Amino acid sequence: MKVTISKAVILSLVLILSACKTAEFSEKTLKESEEQLTPLRTISVKENKIPRTIEKDGKIRWVLEGYDWTKGFWPGVCWMQYENTLDPKWKEAAELNQKIFLADKDLTNDHDLGFLFNNSYGKAYKITNDPKYRQVLIDASNSLITRFNKNVGCIQSWDLKDNWQSKKGWSFPVIIDNMMNLEMLFEVSILTGDDKYKNIAITHANTTMKNHFRPDGSSYHVVDYNPQTGSVNSKITAQGYADESAWARGQAWGLYAYTMCYRYTKDKKYLDFAEKIAKFILTNPNYPQDGVPYWDFNAPNIPNAPRDASSGAILASGLIELSTYTNDKYLKQATHILKSLASDNYTAKLGENGHFVLKNSVGSLPMGNEVSVPLNYADYYYIEALMELKKRGI
């Protein structure tokens, strides 16, 4: 008997095989990340400290005992590893390390509470549904919204006393990074049924959309406002090459955050804006072939400028979510970035790199701080992106 196979069946088999191949990549890469990070977990538990990066001599640099915006990323990494493996040691490490900064939920002089708590206690609540984490998110959100100024329509980023920003002459600085803290406010509105958190997040997003971005979709790093009138004093940079340059991590923050805003509001203007940012990044003449950006799109020494794996990881994670709202339009680019990050150019060999996964990230090049080193937030967004690939079965 002659058996015929339709084109539709053949196409289905091809798609299935293709999906299996991609899933094999994400599962394999996640497993390798766990192997690399396990010794770091052991050390962090023993020391009861949160790893941030490595020193010049290769030793682990721990987060600062006082203010440090990166505190939440390592517990978040541990929660994702627990979600992926169900190994209770990852859960124990996450809980131990996030307790270190629990008191920070009541800080009102810190705009990074979303980074600290949404990426740690927020992950914990989503994975375990344990109500003890819920109140922490509410408390942190109540602290964060005290920094909202109705005249400006934004949450203030940096305070201007007793720090390096005080020398800049700013009045009410708002940085593009601050968009990432809005996710916690959206979440807490859902948890509490109180729209005040969501409304502040929307107002901040709209004000930032109006004042932070150029016509081509690129963003300034810092916008300084007059806190009495809400008018713009200046548009400058602190982390980028120049005031008018496009600092790579800032562009990635914007894409990720406006995609997130669309997730919570379903307001198409946010989706369209995220796509506008994506177009600027992906069609930029200085966007590298491997998809991992230079630290600034206008760095003067391209192609010899340092790459920033953290920007690549944030970008990949943001593009994966953006693809879910655009018929997988950006999935190929996201996967390409992740495969580049998984290569020897950016992924450390087992046991090296202070046991961090990714190497070659840039913290603050203008300040000569954390250049071409691992960073805990690079690993966080890298693993988050890989988890999304796996969850989608591709």
Rank of each mutant, 00 (worst) to 15 (best):
K28T: 07
M1D: 02
L389S: 01
K7W: 12
A305T: 05
D106Q: 13
N298D: 08
T265C: 13
E47R: 09
I50E: 01
Q98A: 01
M387D: 00
G58N: 08
G169Y: 10
L341K: 03
A94K: 03
A94H: 05
K150F: 11
T29R: 12
Q135V: 12
I314H: 01
D104L: 12
F186V: 14
P75S: 04
D112K: 08
Q289N: 12
T29S: 11
Q81S: 10
S26Q: 04
T259E: 01
K59C: 03
W158I: 06
K21W: 13
N129E: 00
L185K: 00
G240T: 04
H111I: 09
K329A: 08
L30S: 01
V152E: 01
K279G: 10
Y133H: 06
E27V: 15
F273K: 00
D130E: 06
V3D: 05
G114A: 04
V223I: 08
G368H: 10
V77M: 02
L11D: 00
T259D: 02
L282A: 07
P306T: 07
T22D: 04
M80D: 00
P300H: 09
W90A: 03
V188S: 05
N142S: 09
V9H: 14
A278P: 04
K123I: 13
T42A: 12
T335Q: 12
K167D: 13
S234N: 11
W295N: 05
G393W: 14
F101G: 01
S218T: 10
K349M: 12
E35W: 08
E275C: 15
K126Y: 15
T324V: 10
Y294G: 04
P293S: 12
Q135F: 11
K59N: 09
L102I: 13
L96K: 07
Y258H: 06
R307C: 06
T237S: 11
I175A: 02
S33G: 06
P75W: 15
S310R: 00
T283I: 09
Q239M: 05
E187Y: 06
F186I: 10
Y197V: 11
E388T: 01
I302N: 04
G351Q: 02
P293R: 11
K332A: 11
S372A: 12
N304R: 15
K359L: 06
S340H: 04
A316C: 07
L144S: 10
K71Q: 02
Y325Q: 05
L13Q: 07
N233G: 08
L365I: 05
E384F: 05
K268V: 15
T324M: 12
P88S: 14
D194W: 07
G318C: 06
N149F: 07
V373P: 00
D110C: 08
I337S: 04
T4N: 01
Q228Y: 10
N118I: 13
L182H: 00
A205T: 09
Y220G: 04
Y262V: 11
E244M: 14
N109V: 09
F297T: 06
E183M: 13
L375A: 03
S234F: 11
I145R: 04
A205R: 01
N163G: 09
S234E: 12
G393I: 15
